[in-house]
Amino acid sequence: MSKKKQKRLIMRVSILAVLLAAVSYTIYSSVTGDERSLVRAGDQAPDFILEDLDGDTHQLSDYKGQGVFLNFWGTWCEPCKEEFPYMQKHYEVFKDQGVEVIAVNVGESEFKVSNFANQFGLTFPVVRDVNSDVMDAYSIGPLPTTLLVNSDGEIEKVITGEMSEEMIVSYMNMIKPESQESSE
């Protein structure tokens, strides 16, 4: 009889466990909601190819071996504007250490984007995501959003919202390839 009792207990435990797992999964999925679909730290950065203002194409995977500071922005977005002078300033320092900055505009007109780039004297590639393709791939919500991609093409960190100058410097340090560090 105790054998039967044990069998029954195992049965009950397994049924309750299956139910608990299903319920937990459902509630977890629903509470975390859209966040779940976001591209997160630790993920491989989705590859993309976009054209810059000079008509040159930039493909993310071509930058393997370098750290990529990937910034999504729009001309009307105030915090985005605040970041650009710092990004430009430190890009000039870090580009020789293997850090590339790619600024992805969220599909505004070439006129607006090139005016903006000229106004801030940007020397890093500024590309336009005309069909919202790359934004969709990276599930970009509010602007600005910055992704730090390391030399292995892996996302180190996702930053939503404005960054201070100190943050920009520390982030660029974070994705600086190691070989470059040791050669210093």
Binding site: I15, V23, T26, I27, S30
Partner: peptide, 22 residues
Amino acid sequence: YGSWWYMLLVAAIGTSIIIASL
């Protein structure tokens, strides 16, 4: 329908249906 406690209630009803029926 998106509240965790409402989902929990529905899940509890589901559990009750399964166990009570068994």
